[in-house]
Structure formats: C-alpha cells, structure tokens
C-alpha cells in the first residue's frame, strides 16, 4: 500500500484543496512509521474539522433528524427493557426458562438484541459525541457543553438517590421506588432531549452521518430482534405457566401481564418509529450528493 493512498481517507473538501500538494511532498519525503501515523492522525483531524466536512446539505440534515428519532426510540426501548428485566427476575421464571425452549430462546434473543443495539448506538454515537465536544470546546459553546453534561449528571443523581435510600433503610419502600422509577423515566427523557438538541445544533459531516446511518439500521434490526424475543418469551411463559401472568411480578408490584403488555407496546412503538425514520431518511447516495 502506497502512503499516498491514505489521502483517500481525508474529507473530499480537504482532498480537493490539498491532495496534490501533499502527494508532491510525500514523493520527496523519506517515509517512516511516524509519517503513516501522522497522516492517519491528520485524517481524523480533518474529519473533525467542520470547514472540510461540515457542509452537509438538506439531505444530510434529514438524515440527522432520522438518526435523532432513532436514538430517542432506543432510549424508550431501554426504559421498556428494564420493565422486561423486572418480569424475568424471579427464580421460578429462571427455572421455566431452562425447562421450556421457547422461553429460553426468547430470553436470549432479547439479550442479544439489546447488546447489539447498544453497541450499534455507541459505535454510531461516539464519533458524533467527539465532534460535539470538540466544537463546544473550540468555539466555547456553553450551550453544547451544558447539553453534554445532562446525561452523566442525571445518572449520578439517580445513583445518589438510590444510595441514599438504601443507606437510610435496608429495604426501599414502594413510595421511594415509585419516586426512583419516575426520576429514571424523566432523566431518560431529559437526557435524550439534551443529546438530541446538541446533535441538532452541531455541524456534522457526511462521514459520521453515514456511519450513524449504518449504526441506526443495525440498532433498529436489533431492537426488532429483542421485541420478537419478548413476544416469544411471553407466549412461551403463558403456555407453560399461565398463572405467572396473574401474579404481581410486574413493575411496582403490578400484575405481570400489565407490565408485559406495556413493555411490548413501548418496544413495538420504538421499533415502528425507528423503521419509519429509516424509511423516510435519504439513502447514502442521495445524502452524500445533497
């Protein structure tokens, strides 16, 4: 591999302006490992620089809106997933999972889907977060910085709340649990809103949007797998032990079938919202040209 081929990984706007010059320099330069490393680091720098890669067109902005919608759907999906976790935590259901293949397969499909969706969101979201942080620091954008600190701050507050409740009493009463769950849901909504606003107010380039598009497709497919797993798990459990759904094993000691239906409805809405967002988002060729 010739070192000049690394220049292909620079943004198109940078290449149009500097590629010939740098190619000329490289032809005269004594290339070492440091040169390779330096050019790779330069490519990252150029991609993070909105002057070379921030000029996305209307199609890029549509894609960004779609990705924000899918991120919010993922957060709703995570909240519903915690309800599912509550349904599965008692020992009886763990035993049924071993005895009945459908329940086990459904459960593991949920886990695999959740892990893949999380990894996809992290893979697509980290480069965007890096660009937001960089632009916020470079331009002293306090609004962006404030939005970025909302999720970790709320997470710390949530952990502190739980820790204080546990310290004051070995068991947490139902009022505290209601408060904690309410705070968790509000924190999830506030975090999703803050991150979405930060993304909407940042100049993103077509490379990270393209990466996030693939991540969104994978995350949507994985959420669909988890939803299917929840349904299979529920149908299997209903067949094997119908009485389980009549017990108060749901969130806040509600009937299990109530929690199960809520989980399925929220997860299904999240998957449908993601599919609609993907359907309405421009294709790669369109947004790269737009």
């Amino acid at each position: 591999m010739q070192i000049a081929t690394l220049l292909r990984y620079y943004p198109p706007a940078w290449r149009a302006r500097y590629e010939d010059e740098v190619t000329d320099v490289l032809e005269q330069h004594r290339v070492s490992y440091a040169t390779w490393f330096d050019l790779v680091r330069g490519a990252f720098d150029a991609h993070l620089d909105p002057r070379f890669s921030g000029a996305v067109g209307a199609a890029g902005r549509r894609l960004r809106r779609a990705e924000i919608a899918i991120f919010c759907a993922f957060i709703a999906f995570v909240v519903a997933g915690i309800g599912f976790q509550k349904l599965t935590e008692d020992a009886d259901k763990a035993g049924l999972m071993q005895a009945h293949a459908a329940i086990g397969i459904g459960y593991y499909a949920v886990i695999v889907g959740a892990v893949v969706a999380l990894l996809a969101v992290v893979a697509g979201g980290l480069p965007i977060a890096a660009i937001i942080a960089r632009q916020a620091l470079a331009a002293s954008r306090r609004d962006l910085l404030a939005m970025l600190v909302v999720p970790p701050l709320l997470f710390v507050a949530l952990v502190a709340w739980g820790a204080v409740d546990l310290r004051s009493s070995s068991t947490i009463d139902s009022a505290s649990i209601r408060g904690l769950i309410g705070f968790f849901v509000l924190a999830a909504i506030a975090s999703a809103a803050a991150v979405s606003l930060a993304v909407a107010r940042t100049d993103l380039n077509d490379v990270v949007l393209g990466l996030a598009r693939w991540a969104s497709i994978i995350a949507t497919a994985a959420m669909g797998l988890s939803l299917a797993g929840v349904v299979v798990w529920g149908v299997g459990l209903h067949s094997a032990a119908p009485s389980s759904f009549a017990l108060d094993g749901g969130v806040l000691t509600s009937y299990a079938y109530v929690t199960f239906l809520r989980v399925v409805i929220v997860m299904a809405l999240a998957v449908v919202a993601s599919l609609v967002a993907l359907w309405r988002a421009p294709g790669r060729d369109v947004f790269m040209a737009g």
């Binding site: 040169t35 330069g42 002057r51």
Partner: peptide
C-alpha cells in the same frame, strides 16, 4: 511530518 505540516498550514491559512 506532512500530516502535521498541512494540519498547521490549514489552520493558519484559515
């Protein structure tokens, strides 16, 4: 190295 040279040149040109 060339990556650093052009990283600095682009910023100073801007």
């Amino acid at each position: 190295e060339p990556g650093t040279l052009y990283g600095a040149l682009t910023r100073m040109e801007q």
